[in-house]
């Protein structure tokens, strides 16, 4: 279970991390703890997989990469097999089973925009299923933030 200090750390570090020589010390001071304690707790939250990462979130398109959301309608009895085929691609950033006729939803992040179509083509060939490609057309800004 998360302790109050863990929650405070997660909430604080969803915002901006300081750009100074000793940023952990600065955040620790804000939270009323020590630098060593903050670093140890961050390490544990990462080890326990409460956090998937601590670092930069890049803007894929500005880096010259491709990014899209895609969906498949997978027959129930083939779901496991198709999930394994799709997840085997390094370009698949995440993949969720959802309650809908289109029941598999995954995000593709590729080094180049062209690579998106190549991966989609490869997935269609491998699975024999149609990939519904739904790239973002407009983003309404919010910023990802969870109350820990």
């Amino acid at each position: 279970m998360l302790e109050p200090l863990d929650r405070a750390i997660i909430n604080r570090l969803q915002g901006e991390f300081p750009l100074c020589e000793e940023p952990y010390a600065q955040v620790a001071e804000e939270l009323g703890t020590s630098e060593a304690e903050l670093i140890a707790r961050l390490q544990r939250l990462l080890d326990d997989k409460i956090l998937s990462r601590f670092g930069p979130m890049y803007h894929a398109e500005r880096l010259g990469g491709g990014l899209t959301l895609a969906a498949l309608a997978v027959p129930e009895e083939r779901f496991e097999a198709v999930a394994a085929q799709v997840n085997a691609f390094a370009e698949v950033a995440h993949n969720y089973q959802r309650d809908h006729h289109l029941n598999m939803w995954f995000v593709l992040a590729t080094e180049t925009p062209q690579r998106i179509n190549e991966v989609i083509g490869e997935i269609e060939r491998l699975t024999g299923l149609t990939v519904f490609n739904m790239p973002k057309e407009q983003e309404f800004y919010i910023g990802l933030r969870f109350d820990a």
């Binding site: 939250l45 956090l51 601590f54 670092g55 979130m57």
Partner: peptide
């Protein structure tokens, strides 16, 4: 290019 520098929660 860096949208945010911080934790990514599960």
């Amino acid at each position: 290019i860096i949208k945010r520098l911080g934790v990514v929660v599960r």
